[in-house]
């Protein structure tokens, strides 16, 4: 749906709009890759059951704000604690859930479950029977009593102490035989609470992991769009990445699909030889929380001309945040130059406050848009795909998918 003409991309607008039909995957499916689909799109097959209504773009952006607020709060808390100062930040919450779904097997016999994957989370969980309070999910609930490989832990177990160190929450332990309880509350007030246990998790026929530590949720509420739970790909020691480090050596990759009707992939371990160059950027964690994947983004270029410089304390890459957030001054510089390059189109007042550079593309099937690239420390440049520039609010309103943090010093 895209082409490059005279230094610009030609973008087919329909590729950004919500689709009703899932297109056949063009990815060569292989046993090392899990298929990734949009949580709200037609390729999440279970949407056909209509047990959950797809949110509007405005609702998705509101959720995105909750997630970003949680991330900023979490990071502020960490940095402020280092400085031995106190701020009134919300604590005890992790960030909101992500936007992309993969299917993995859990238990013996294996039950396939559609889980949201999230690089910002450390605890994997699924809704379990018996359920005291559960949101609607499209697959039957996982029943640990019907799995021969499930076991729970007591609150005095070593595994339970791992949970305490990972979530920062102290276990209440009335007696040594009391069950180990986990609880995760997300930034949008969604939550999951239940038994902490271990189970067999199956990625594919040859990649099966016994004793995988996860949460079996008996009280769960939130906007999880019919998914059965969450696959945590964060940096904590309970994340899937850490628990499978012996086999996969802490290497994984994903490709997020360009449209809601197409699919991407999630794979673990060193990749087979692929076409195309991988441009690497140094991972930086020292100045950020241990929970997130930090990079040093230094600037942004439009049509190969650097227009904004980032001098903030760092950048994290997150699979669950929708809109890229930049320091306020960086965003202003990007916005100015972007608007200059898009002068031939009608700029409209945004109906969504988060996004303030929106265009009315009525009457156009395709538009020409400038090339945007991310400039990282070490000289690495990553050019964005043409589908990675705009966020569609409606069939005629398309907004630059960047936003500024409210203040550089906030």
């Amino acid at each position: 749906g895209t082409a490059t003409v005279s230094g610009h991309h030609t973008l087919q607008l329909s590729s950004l709009l919500p689709a009703t039909v899932c297109t056949h995957s063009t990815i060569v499916e292989n046993k090392k890759r899990l298929k990734v689909v949009d949580k709200h799109g037609p390729c999440f097959q279970l949407h056909k059951n209509k047990t959950s209504k797809a949110p509007t773009p405005a609702e998705i952006l509101q959720q995105d704000e909750y997630r970003v607020n949680s991330i900023q709060s979490h990071l502020s808390k960490n940095s402020i604690e280092t400085d031995a100062t106190t701020i009134p930040a919300e604590s005890g919450e992790t960030i909101g859930s992500g936007n992309y779904i993969v299917t993995v097997g859990l238990g013996t016999p294996k039950r396939d479950l559609s889980l949201i994957f999230d690089t910002g989370s450390d605890v994997t969980w699924t809704q379990c029977q018996p359920c005291n309070a559960c949101y609607k999910q499209n697959e039957p609930l996982f029943d640990p009593s019907k799995s021969t490989s499930y076991a729970s832990f007591s609150c005095t177990s070593q595994q339970c102490s791992l949970l305490t160190s990972s979530t920062g929450k102290t276990q209440s332990c009335s007696s040594p035989a009391s069950p180990c309880q986990y609880g995760v509350r997300y930034g949008d007030r969604s939550y999951t609470i239940g038994d902490f246990g271990k189970e067999r998790i199956t990625i594919n026929q040859s990649d099966v992991f016994d004793n995988f530590l996860f949460g079996c949720g008996h009280n769960n509420q939130g906007l999880f769009s019919g998914a059965a739970g969450l696959l945590a790909l964060g940096r904590g020691e309970l994340s899937f990445v850490e628990q499978t480090a012996q086999k996969y050596n802490r290497i994984f990759s994903y490709c997020l699909p360009p449209t809601s009707s197409s699919s991407g992939f999630l794979s673990f371990g060193k990749a087979d030889k692929v076409s195309g160059v991988v441009n690497y950027v140094q991972l930086s964690s020292a100045s950020l929380s241990n929970s997130f994947y930090g990079l040093q983004l230094e600037g942004i270029s439009i049509n190969e001309r650097r227009v904004s410089v980032i001098s903030s304390s760092g950048t994290i890459i997150d699979s669950g945040t929708v809109i890229t957030r930049l320091p306020a001054s960086t965003y202003r510089a990007l916005r100015y130059e972007f608007q200059q390059q898009m002068k031939q189109y009608i700029l409209i007042k945004s109906p969504v406050s988060l996004l303030d550079t929106c265009y009315d593309f009525s009457g156009n099937d395709n538009v020409e848009i400038p090339k945007l690239s991310l400039l990282f420390s070490g000289g690495t440049t990553v050019e964005l795909d043409s589908t990675g520039v705009f966020y569609a609010l409606s069939e005629s309103q398309f907004c630059l998918a960047f936003a500024g943090n409210s203040d550089n010093t906030e």
Partner: peptide
Amino acid sequence: IAILGNVQQRRLEVVYDIGGQRVGFRSAAC
């Protein structure tokens, strides 16, 4: 803190090599 969101990651393969302390990007991967 800036956050690189998922719209900007579309079609890029994002490779997390935690042991190697690096994150890679490959264009037009899906």
